[in-house]
Design a protein around this nucleic acid. Structure first.
Length: 431
RNA sequence: GGAGAGAUGGCUGAGUGGCUGAAAGCGCACCCCUGCUAAGGGUGUAUAGGUUUACCCCUAUCGAGGGUUCGAAUCCCUCUCUCUCCGCCA
């Protein structure tokens, strides 16, 4: 959530920043425009209501005093009867206006950081650097490799649950599990994130805290009969671990890694990546989350991005780092670096991790604060990123490790660092 | 799922209509005292919003929402959560 005071004070500046995402965000009828219109109205109404409440409180106190002393207070009583009703009415109206205002605020995205490049979509993202040698020979798509080896079963996923679900068998199932463990170990032991394990269901307040709600309810699976949802990422429960807390400044930064399944309806992506494991309704992910002092957010983002990249390097998967443009960063993010892994079957880089700084946007929404030197509570900054998406990593390993032996049989070389997690297995061959 | 009990500040815990934003204790911070230590004394210590250079002041908040009342932590209703017992269960 944007800062209310800054909203008034730095209005122009914020508006320009938001317009860099999309002109429509600040156009007539936008949440931004609504909030702007409601702000003064809302405060005036509140001031009025409070003045009346003050009057009511004052006289009520007087009545109490008089009664205690045995004096007659009927005159005040008669007068206050009316004031009480009026006050209730005003208060209700003021609350309604305040609610409309804060609802509008909740739908305003984070103004991008000044360093975020201009642009409207992924074509305007800027490549920062590359790592590794992308293989250029012809490689089959992972679904062909997986089916040839008998380890990926898309038909079974469809039968059990529907489209965009899949079943892993044998070495692929083990690879999924090995990757989770490998990544968690690396982040916990080498990068010093405290591992947590969290629920895969979150309530409305929690999802509002990280910014998925109220705007993106259609992207979530909602539980029938409950105001709760399957989480789209572990970022949601892990960040909200500190919801409504005031953190001791000495405890910052707080760093957590977590594995969780993730559930996404993919409502807006009909027809995209319909084959294979790239875009599933359910997928596994190891997530990195940091709560930091606002001054440290961008440094932490660099650090966290490198932590995610370290996984790709350990797995010998070529990748590049992309600085997302203003039109392509997510709702809550102030700045985002994507890690894209090389997929030889399509000769392109595909997103495998998205690392963002949210500045104080989530901290304000979720009520996660720390105490400054002066003793005043202030919202923490949050930084998070995938470290990494497991399914896409599995895809990348299948394609980048794919080989053909002298008899013309497919096999996949398992990255060396992963072998101990695979019971020593060095390559996956057809069963 | 059934029955009962409960939810108050960083914590423990008083408080059944006004003098309670809230006793007392603990914790924490600062100060004083004591040669050191131990003990002791004093002061302060919620959050949000409004106003303000700042202080002050005003408003709200005792799980959440609504109601009764001039006035609600306290009375009434609804909901949520926690605990105990029973049932079921990986």
């Amino acid at each position: 959530m944007i800062d209310r005071k800054a909203f008034r004070k730095d209005f122009e500046q914020m508006q320009q920043a938001l317009a860099r995402r999309d002109e429509g965000l600040v156009a007539k009828g936008s949440a931004w425009a609504r909030a702007h219109a409601l702000d003064t109205v809302q405060r005036d109404m509140k001031a009025q209501s409070e003045a009346l409440q003050a009057e009511r409180n004052r006289v009520s106190k007087l009545i109490g005093q008089k009664k205690r002393q045995g004096n007659d207070a009927s005159e005040e009583l008669a007068r206050m009867s009316e004031v009480g009703k009026q006050s209730k009415q005003l208060d209700a109206e003021a609350k309604e206006a305040e609610l409309a205002f804060s609802n509008a605020l909740l739908e305003i995205p984070n103004p991008p950081h000044g360093s975020v490049p201009d642009g409207v979509d992924e074509n305007d993202n800027i490549e920062i650097r590359r790592w590794g040698e992308p293989r250029q020979d012809d490689v089959p798509a992972h679904w062909d490799i997986g089916e040839a080896l008998g380890i990926l079963d898309f038909d079974a996923g469809v039968k059990l649950a529907g489209s965009r679900f899949s079943v892993l068998r044998g070495a692929a199932a083990r690879l999924e599990r090995a990757l989770i463990q490998f990544m968690l170990d690396m982040h916990a032991d080498q990068h010093h994130y405290e591992e947590v394990w969290v629920p895969a269901i979150a309530n409305r307040k929690t999802l509002t805290g990280t910014g998925q709600l109220p705007k993106f309810e259609d992207d979530l699976y909602r539980l029938e009969g409950e105001d709760a949802f399957l989480i789209p990422t572990a970022e949601v429960p892990v960040t909200n671990l500190y919801q409504d807390n005031i953190i001791n400044i000495a405890d910052l930064p707080i760093k957590h890694c977590a594995y969780s399944p993730c559930f996404r309806r993919e409502a807006g992506s009909a027809g995209r990546d319909t084959r294979g494991m790239i875009r599933q309704h359910q997928f596994d992910k190891v997530e990195l989350v940091q709560l930091v002092h606002p001054d440290d957010a961008l440094t932490a983002l660099d650090e966290l991005t490198q932590h995610a990249a370290a996984v790709l390097e350990a797995l010998e998967l070529p990748y590049r780092v992309v600085d997302l443009c203003a039109g392509d960063i997510g709702f809550s993010a102030q700045k985002t670096f994507d890690l894209e892994v090389w997929l030889p079957s399509h000769s392109c880089y595909r997103e495998i991790s998205s690392c963002s700084s949210f500045a104080q946007f989530q901290g304000r929404r979720a009520g996660i604060r720390f105490r400054t030197e002066s003793g005043k509570p202030e919202a923490v900054a949050t930084v998070n990123g995938s470290g990494l998406a497991i399914g896409r990593t599995l895809v990348a390993i299948l394609e980048n490790g794919w080989q053909i032996d002298e008899n013309g049989n497919d096999f996949v070389v398992i990255p060396e660092k992963l072998r101990s997690y695979m019971g020593g297995l060095a390559k996956i061959s057809a069963a």
